[in-house]
Structures are given as C-alpha cells and as structure tokens.
C-alpha cells in the first residue's frame, strides 16, 4: 500500500445520553476507534448492529459531532460535511417528489453547479449506473435496487475523493444485493475512489474490499483487521476459495466472542 492516506481516524469516541423512565444514563457507542484508509483503497467495516458502525460513518461524513478524537480527510480535519466526501445512504434518501435525474443532480445543485452542467453530469452518472432510460422516473416507480443506483449516481456525480457508503444494500433482497455488489465493483474499477463501506454482511465485506475492519464490543472499536488478498477484478468463484472461506471463518470467530 502506498503511504498516501485519504482518511485518518484516530482515538474517536462518542457517547449518547439516553433517558429511560426519567433517569439519564450515558451510552458509549464508540470508544477509541483508530484506522487509516489509503487513497484508492476499498475498506469495509463489518460488525453486529449497535456496534457504532453508522455513528462512525456519520462522524466521517461530518453529520455527527464526536466527543474525542480526530478525523482527517485529505490531510484536513473534518468539522462538517465537505465536497471531498459523498454519502450513499442505507434507505436511499431520495427526494420522493423529484425524478431520477433531478435526484442525481440535487447534490450538484447544492454545490452551486449551473443547470445545464449539472444535468449533463447527472445524465452521465445515471448512464454509469445503467439507468439511462429512467431519467424521468420518480423514486416510487423504481425497484429498491434501482433506487440505490440513483443514490450511488448522486454520490458519484459530485466527483468526491472519498465515497462513504452506509449499508447501501442493507434493505435489498439477496439476489439484487449480489448484482449490486458486482455493479459497484465494476464502477469502482473505472476510477478507483477511496471507499468506506459499512455492512453487516461478512461475505459482502470480503467480496468487495481490500481491507476489512471488524468492529465489536461496547463501546464499539476495531477489534480485527483483515486483508483479503484476492486478485482483482473479483469474481464470484473466489467466494469458494480457501483464502475467502478461511478469512470468513476467522471473522465469524471474532464476532462470536
């Protein structure tokens, strides 16, 4: 790996205050999370629900203030949302009243890109995710997989350095999910962006990533780092390879304790 670091997270801690029957208690969610992501590296974070994966991603996105620790992207400290990062959301977060094209163009619009230019870039992004025929469709007219393609196109259209994906395929069925994984890798191979990918699927993490961080514990932290050294481009047959299965078993062991 090159020493060119895209994302650097160190000593990240976050707690929430929870009130149950009038009594307040502190629930620590993240405790001392530290990791780095190299430029053009695809890193997945896998862990059980409630281990702080989503809080971690929201912190890196600049949507959540942290209690302790630092986050740097491209060497600059993160204090809020920024143009060098784009998020793909779990429940797609599409504007229900806007067409696919307008949804993809929304990020560009917020960044002040002119109308003609943003429509051109949105069309290109839609084409990239294979939705060129659906520019005028409203979200409710699309299937779940197609909706998330729109979400991915929206994130790609602003041309970020780092793509933050929060369980993007979590609400899709298994069959759609697998084809979306392949689709994502195909897009990623074109211009390798730095990706931070959150998931609770061990197989998904191994299939997609250069490196898998396993999170666990309360408060959540990185308990294990694995490097699936499977050659790219990835194929489904690799899933039955010795390297894949042994790494999968190792992750399951880590998560079990």
């Amino acid at each position: 790996m090159s020493t060119d670091v895209a994302v650097r997270v160190s000593g990240l801690a976050k707690s929430f205050v929870r009130e149950t029957r009038g009594r307040a208690s502190v629930v620590p969610v993240l405790g001392d999370v530290t990791f780095e992501i190299a430029r053009a590296e695809f890193v997945s974070i896998v862990g059980p629900s409630g281990c702080g994966k989503t809080s971690l991603l929201r912190s890196v996105a600049g949507l959540l203030d942290v209690d302790a620790g630092t986050i740097e992207v491209d060497g600059k400290a993160v204090t809020g949302p920024g143009r060098e990062r784009a998020v793909v959301f779990q429940d797609f977060a599409l504007l229900p009243w806007a067409s696919s094209l307008d949804n993809v163009a929304f990020g560009l619009k917020l960044q002040g890109v002119g109308r003609a230019e943003r429509r051109r870039r949105a069309r290109a992004a839609l084409e990239m995710v294979g939705l060129d025929g659906f520019a005028d469709a409203l979200p409710h007219e699309l299937s779940g997989g197609m909706r998330q393609r729109v979400g991915i196109a929206r994130a790609l259209s602003v041309d970020p350095d780092v793509l933050l994906m929060d369980e993007p395929f979590g609400s899709l069925d298994e069959i759609t999910r697998r084809s979306m994984q392949e689709e994502l890798l195909r897009i990623w191979e074109r211009d390798k962006k730095t990706v931070l990918f959150i998931t609770h699927s061990v197989e998904e993490a191994l299939f997609l990533s250069d490196r898998v961080l396993v999170m666990g514990g309360k408060p959540g932290r990185v308990v294990e780092t694995l490097t699936p050294e499977l050659p790219r481009p990835r194929t489904r047959s690799q899933e039955s390879s010795e390297a894949f299965t042994s790494m999968r078993d190792k992750i399951w062991e880590t998560l079990a304790c």
Partner: peptide, 11 residues
Amino acid sequence: ALHDMARSFGA
C-alpha cells in the same frame, strides 16, 4: 434522513 442527505452534499 433527507435533511441529513442535503447536509452531506453541503447544504
């Protein structure tokens, strides 16, 4: 969720 999305794109 939509509000978060807009903020993440710099709104």
